[in-house]
Structures are given as structure tokens and as C-alpha cells.
Amino acid sequence: MPSSTKERPVSTLFSHGSTKSFVPRQQYVFYVLVTIVAILLILSLVTNANYQWATVAQYLLAPSILQGLLVTLWITLVCMVIAVVLGLILAFMGLAQSAYVRGAAEVYIVFFRGTPLLVQLIFWYNISALYPNFGIGIPFGPQFLDIDLNQVITPIGAAIMGLALNEAAYMAEIFRGGLNGLPKGQIEAADALGLSGWTKVRRVVLPQLLPVVVPPTWNQMIGMLKNTSLISVIGASELLYSAQAIYARTYQTIPLLIVVSLWYLAISIILTIVQRRIEKAVKR
């Protein structure tokens, strides 16, 4: 292992020598063009009455919008928690000795990553057309448990199932990469010192695993936040659906979509700021 490798900021990798002489005239033309486009955009935002900024302001904090936002937030959280747990299980299955267990994890990941999330969501919503009843019992014998899936599969239920099961496939890949990248020597050093169980995991494995796994997981969370808008299609009353319910009545489509976008943007920005903090903390 090299004892010390000097880290070079990425920005210096692309410039050779002095940067001062490296501002060609074309660059100023580009600055001017960008400025003009920006001014035009802002002018249009202010002058085009179709934006209906008054309506945006009116609905930004409307109770039904906030209600939808709340649903979006808790579904994001719940689905990520389920996906992390399921993803961990799948990742460990992927590392199993048995080819049978590895194969099962592989099939799951191929299936859930290989079909569109939107299709999966609609599929789960209509699962009762495929299996009207879900029961536990002996085939052709007595049933111990019998559930009418028409009752259970609500829009929210199908949404959580669809988003979480899909996300688990991606989380499994992230965890698998992290576990594969663990230096074997570190585990052996911990073993040789007699560290066992939780101490080994907490003091040796996690400090090496978290910097690799946490940033992409947080990235997936930001993705999940936006993917929840897909579940409006199956009638789950999240943020977008709440806005659609309003503009279906009032025809104020554009201002309500702006309201929705502003909320997604705000939460994304907050999550990104937190992500930067986590990356810094985890890098130490």
C-alpha cells in the first residue's frame, strides 16, 4: 500500500499550467449570450400573466397541498427504510455460498431493474385481478389465512409495495458494491486481535462501509422523493395528485404544477444540503 498519495483537486486535472492566459474571446461571447437568455427568461416570468403568480401564492400553503406533501414525505421515508432492509438482505444473499440463494437475489434484481417502475406500480395496483385472494394453507387442503386482496390493495398500499420493492433492487447493488470493496485484510486484522461480533462491525466494518454506501443511498432517497409523483397515476393522494385534484376543478393547471415543482425543489435542496454534510462527516 502506498504510504501517502497526494490528492489533487479534480479541477486541476484538466488545466495545464497557468489559467490566466486561458480565457479566449469566445468565452466572453458565451457569457453575454447566457446573460441575455437569463434576462429574457426573468422578464417572461414577470410579464407573462399565464404564470398566475397570485394563484401560486394562494395554493402554496393550501391545506390539501400540504396534506399531499406530507403523504409524499412519509411514503418516501417508509419506502426507503423498507428498501434499505430488503436491499441489505438481497446483498448478503448475493454473497452467499449457495448458487441457489445467489441466483434468487440475481433474478429479483434483474426483474425489478429490468421493468419500468410505472408499469410495476400499475401492476401492483391491479394484482387482485391476478390473485383475487391471498391465503396461507395446504394446497387443496384447509386454508389457515385468507385475505381478499381487493380489500388490502389500496392505492397507498400498492404504491408503497411498488416503490419499495423496486428501490430494494437498486439498494442491493449499492450494498453489494460496498461489501465487495471491503479490504479483506481489515477483517482479518480485526479477527486476529480477537475482536468479535458487534465490536468488529461497529469499529472496523462500518467505518469503511459507510463512506461508500451512504452518499449513493442518500442520492437514491432524493430520487425516491421525485419518483413518488408516479403513484398519482394509481390514485395515491400524494403531492402531485393533490394538485391535480385542484386543477381538475379550477383548470389552473400551470400555477398548480409550479406549486408542486417548488415543493419538490425545496425538499430536494434541503436533502442535498444534508447530503453534503453527511459526505463531509463520513469522509473523516
Binding site: 500500500m1 481489515q186 486484522a189 480485526a190 486481535l193 480477537g194 475482536l195 469499529r203
Partner: peptide, 29 residues
Amino acid sequence: ARQRAHIGMVFQSFNLFPSMTVLENVTLA
């Protein structure tokens, strides 16, 4: 693990724990 605690092992590639100081490496076990 209890048996190994009585057997010291030094590896070719050192295998110090990178997230800990020298002192923490030595005091952990």
C-alpha cells in the same frame, strides 16, 4: 475470538485501521 486474543499476528500489509489514530489502533482490542 477468545483464542485469537492470545495469539498476536502481524501481516505483510500492516492492516492498520485507517479511521483510527495510532493510539486508537493499539488500544481498541
